[in-house]
Design a protein around this nucleic acid. Structure first.
Lengths: 236, 236
DNA sequence: GACTCTATCAACACTGTGTCGAGTAAGTCA
DNA sequence: TGACTTACTCGACACAGTGTTGATAGAGTC
């Protein structure tokens, strides 16, 4: 388990198009493929429309009809591909989260080479970069948690993954004597990961108050290092 | 400006019943009062119904009809008292936030007597206690920010108030030599206040991951003290 | 040429919001 | 006392959005 790895996103039933569900699951390699070509296009068109619209306005102002129109189909046809608007957003968020979890070798290298400061910075930078590119999607995912149990579960799973990674790093640093004992490692990890979530979200959406985009990582890392090592300049 | 004071909540137009708006604003002391008695009852009944239902289920599962029925009136009559469901929730959240901001003498006393640890603890305890009593209202207020600009502004104002207070305390502690220099005080305050918001919300709603209710304050205060003073046991 | 499977949509049923206009009841004033 | 005002109430409507049904068309298969 390495730092900031993505906890292997679930293939959720709710987002699978009805077309694929169970029906003759096994055979037909190409015939199916050919028949599905148009269908795959539509599905992609819906997802692309949603991504585009989400950068223009909030999820609550986007209707199923908007998504259908954007994909060049009627509203009932939309329901052939997705069971609901929420399912579209969950699919998109799933992918974003998967993207954000990538590139861990880079982090491991940074941890080994540059010590904890560099390691944490690279980890947080990667995460932040992935989300910063699509603030609309981040916002939609967050908004969705207000009404959608599945969205809450997905995000809880992501958070648990990060917390587990950070807990492991804190324990390792304490074991090798680099960090002093203190709060239970998991408690500290939870508080720090939650701080990051909230602070980065606020910055991403330019809330008030929020940290400036070009300073947010410096501030967060400073708090992390002080909370974990007792100083902002721990030795490698 | 003292720590954790409530930044004087605005009287928002949107929540004022139509009945009061402008129309013959000045005269008639008692006649008006008598005539309004029943109306005040209704208004209170709506607010009480909303508070009750919000502890039972989320805002998205409560309709205007539910509120009207609960208050013993028809749906159109509801609109005589409030312009929308959101306005009801904003009124309730307003009051909760005002409650949470009270009792500052206690905090000032604690800051003076017990030093920063006690001061911060009393401040955070008061806040947390006010919110913990009505998690449904907290959740509704939070959920509302997804769709309602006014809810976002109200919360932004509350956060700004806390950040301003914490910034002032950090600067004071640095000025008297109790805290070392470091990050810009406001940046640090933003990060810490955001951490608290997120962590306390998660604990309140028993999210996963979240800190245990009986440990959340200990954990947060430890991080605060380390981030501000460089140690979890600053001298008074 | 019947059969199947994917894909499509008009029309419908339903839920929830917010408005309109017609009331009633109680108080005010000429 | 009786016309007038004000607070309050709600049936009926218009509208927006969701999700379903059932009929149908085309492409591929046997």
């Amino acid at each position: 388990m390495s730092i900031f790895s993505t906890p292997c996103i679930v293939k959720r039933m709710a987002v699978a198009p009805k077309a694929q569900s169970a029906s003759t699951a096994a055979p037909k390699g190409r015939g199916r493929r050919g028949a599905r070509a148009s269908g795959d296009d539509r599905e992609r068109a819906i997802l692309e429309t949603a991504e585009r619209l989400l950068e223009e306005r909030p999820l609550s102002e986007i209707s199923v009809d908007d998504l259908a129109k954007g994909a060049g189909i009627s509203r009932p046809t939309f329901y052939f591909y997705f069971p609901s608007k929420d399912a579209v957003v969950l699919t998109i968020v799933d992918r974003l989260v998967a993207d954000a979890g990538g590139s861990r070798e880079e982090i491991i290298t940074a941890l080994a080479d540059g010590g904890p400061q560099a390691g944490f910075r690279v980890g947080l930078e990667n995460l932040y970069a992935a989300f910063r590119a699509r603030p609309g999607v981040v916002r939609a995912g967050t908004d969705l948690r207000a009404t959608n149990q599945e969205a809450r579960e997905l995000w809880a799973q992501v958070m648990e993954g990060w917390v587990a990674d950070v807990t492991a790093v804190i324990e390792a640093e304490r074991a090798r004597g680099a960090a002093p004992p203190g709060l239970p490692a998991r408690d500290l990890a939870i508080a720090l990961v939650q701080m990051n979530e909230r602070a980065q979200y606020a910055t991403l959406l330019d809330e008030s108050p929020s940290l400036e985009a070009d300073r947010v990582l410096d501030v967060l890392i400073d708090v992390w290092l002080r909370a974990i090592y007792g100083t902002a300049e721990p030795k490698p």
